[in-house]
Nucleic acid binder design. Structure first.
Lengths: 205, 205
DNA sequence: GCGGGCTTGCACAGTTCTGTGCATCGAGCG
DNA sequence: CGCTCGATGCACAGAACTGTGCAAGCCCGC
């Protein structure tokens, strides 16, 4: 087991990718999945995984970094190009929803702060952006809530996860879920239901 | 280590209670807390814990049963004595909030379905009651949501947890948290913010 | 103060996981 | 065709945890 310094798109690289891919879904199902379980699921032997990642922590860290980056990008992209804060909120929710499937692992891992204690910090930028958006909306009266902006941001985050899980449990059709999540989050922020519905419908054409 | 058949209020019983009490908070912090950690936190030796509970599963099970019972009772009590569905919803949220601190363990444990897979079933009655309440409200037009009742119930559940965690993280004052949670959940169910605020204020005098 | 139940300390077997070393095999690239 | 990088299988040390056994100590109620 030596350096693995071959260029991209080699067999090794494909394997590495597949391990990461499989590990994501495997850790989602069980945050305590062993290296053995992950390896088997990737159609590989445990020893091979250690050829790509020196230890479990590095593997999980790589995973989290990728997911966070994707979510942050989606979140930012979704809310640009509008002055309307409610619209920005709806846009970011819809955009994040697109990468939601991969985002779920963050919930599972975040729950077990011991495994990756740095996860809260890694997600901090996204959370900060959400909070700022909500704070401005609350100030301008676009949003109404008894909760301070940071708390509301936190609640919003959990609502997104909740809708994802509802889909997982068959309580909700996947096609409508993103829009439903956006509408529900807007109404939770005090936006009238009719307005929220119209706004989301317009954005998700 | 023999039978421990002494009547209540003995030393042994006090110890048992303290172990359960401490285990609750300890498992909340880390769902994977070892028997050693729990014992130490309870000011007791690991061997003593095994004197009260034959194994880890029994200990956790006892814990979960107690928490579920308390929550179910609070949920039921909070929504009785009114025909107004919105008021019933607010009442149950406020009531559940009172036992919220102990309820949080259920989240942490529910996340790790491996440990106690029966937890979803144990909570089923509460969830069913919530769902039914929401379903009737949606039918009557008291509530408005793009989500079907079961999904909305799930989202509500998570919102409650989210507010609890917000308090934990210092994002929200504990005194106002219960009322804020109730208002936010009502608005998420499509109840106008002004109405929701008035309703909760009236109930929590 | 005496006894019996409770607690402690220690030891031990069994399990499961991690990370590593080493020899061997396979497959593609030059 | 042969060389090399990667994959495999196996073996091993070390750590952590669970559950149990046993002997000795402690403390409260009778």
């Amino acid at each position: 087991m030596t350096a693995m310094t071959t260029g991209p798109s080699s067999r090794a690289d494909a394997n590495r990718r597949r391990i990461l891919d499989v590990a994501l879904t495997e850790l989602l199902r069980d945050p305590d999945a062993s290296m053995e379980q992950i390896a088997r699921a990737a159609g590989v032997v445990r020893r091979t995984v250690y050829g790509h990642f020196p230890n479990r922590e590095t593997l999980v860290g790589t995973l989290v970094d990728g997911a966070v980056a994707a979510v942050a990008a989606a979140h930012a992209a979704g809310r640009e190009g509008t002055e309307d804060l409610a619209q920005a909120l709806a846009g970011s929710v819809l955009a994040v929803w697109e990468v939601a499937d991969r985002y779920r692992i963050l919930v599972a891992l975040a729950q077990r702060s011991v495994t990756v204690q740095g996860i809260q910090e890694r997600l901090a930028p996204v959370r900060a952006a959400s909070t700022e958006l909500l704070r401005r909306g609350l100030n301008e009266g676009v949003f109404v809530s008894p909760l301070p902006a940071p708390a509301l941001a936190h609640v919003h985050e959990q609502m997104l996860f909740a809708v994802m899980e509802a889909v997982n449990n068959g309580l909700l059709a996947a096609e409508e879920a993103g829009r439903s999540a956006a509408v529900t989050m807007l109404t939770a922020a005090g936006v009238p239901a009719s307005l929220a519905t119209a706004l989301v419908a317009k954005l998700s054409v």
